[in-house]
Design a protein around this nucleic acid. Structure first.
Length: 255
DNA sequence: ATGGTAGACAATCTA
């Protein structure tokens, strides 16, 4: 059984105790992290190595940052979405584990509809589709991370309130669909068609306890890999208790 | 336009 998780941890240094505890408990084969917020030299790899994880990192100071933790050997690591020059922001990391091409992304948030950051987000999604167009849809490929897009009404606690807003505007949903249309299945939806399944709740206004969530963290799988997908779960418990991230992990299992 | 909290890092910026 291969298990792959994605988790926006919002600072790995703040989240280390919780991350280590969760890894010991769940022991996924591979974990894709986003918003590590640390330069590679300062990544706290030692405690993770001690519990069996090799750490592949692509960080930066203060913002963004992604990492892949893996219990199994990894090959063909790439750290940029761009083919020519390295990305200016650390939002992309890919590696092959157990024959599966694993792509970890932290999509731009976009701040507000119509802002320069929003435009950057849409362009970034276009570049992501460009990367996918250089991959084989007949291969086993998994694309996961914080997409910063809720794809459908059932992924939003109050779709009417959110319609047209950042994370749920039509151009963002369209950009997300363009990525899915490369040849993906949304792994969670293979097993869970129901609404009310969220992965992110704002820290403010007690959003988690009020059920004000969105599903913006996704695991997308190519069709050959979708056939092996036996379970997908959101670890809601990780949004509770002392010092949680504002995101919960999502974990997919493959036979 | 605002509000509300968390994190990085030291006055705001990002989410």
């Amino acid at each position: 059984m291969l298990t792959v998780a994605t988790w926006n941890i919002n600072s790995i240094r703040m989240r280390m105790p919780r991350l280590v505890h969760w890894l010991k408990d769940i022991a996924p084969s591979v974990v894709c992290l986003q918003e590590t917020k640390v330069v590679d030299e300062d990544f706290p790899g030692r405690p993770l190595e001690e519990i069996g994880y090799q750490c592949l990192v692509r960080g930066q100071k203060t913002y963004n940052g992604v990492a892949i933790l893996t219990r199994l050997p990894a090959t063909d690591v790439i750290r940029s979405l761009s083919v020519d020059t390295p990305d200016e922001e650390s939002r992309f990391l890919a590696a092959t584990v157990a024959g599966v091409r694993i792509v970890n992304i932290y999509a731009p948030n976009g701040q507000d509809v119509g802002t320069p950051k929003y435009q950057y987000k849409l362009e970034w999604y276009h570049r992501l589709r460009g990367f996918l167009d250089r991959q084989d849809p007949g291969s086993e490929l998994l694309l996961c991370g914080d997409f910063n897009v809720a794809p459908e009404d059932r992924d939003v606690w109050d779709p009417e309130k959110w319609r047209g807003s950042i994370l749920f505007s039509e151009p963002e949903k369209s950009a997300f669909r363009t990525v899915v249309d490369w040849g993906f299945k949304d792994a969670l939806r293979i097993h869970h068609p129901e609404g009310g399944l969220y992965t992110w709740w704002d820290y403010r206004a007690g959003a988690f306890h009020r059920g004000w969530g969105l599903r913006i963290d996704h695991i997308l799988v190519s069709l050959p890999l979708a056939r092996r997908c036996v379970a997908v779960e959101i670890c809601r418990e990780e949004r509770k208790g002392e010092k949680p991230s504002d995101h919960a992990p999502v974990i997919a299992s493959f036979q």
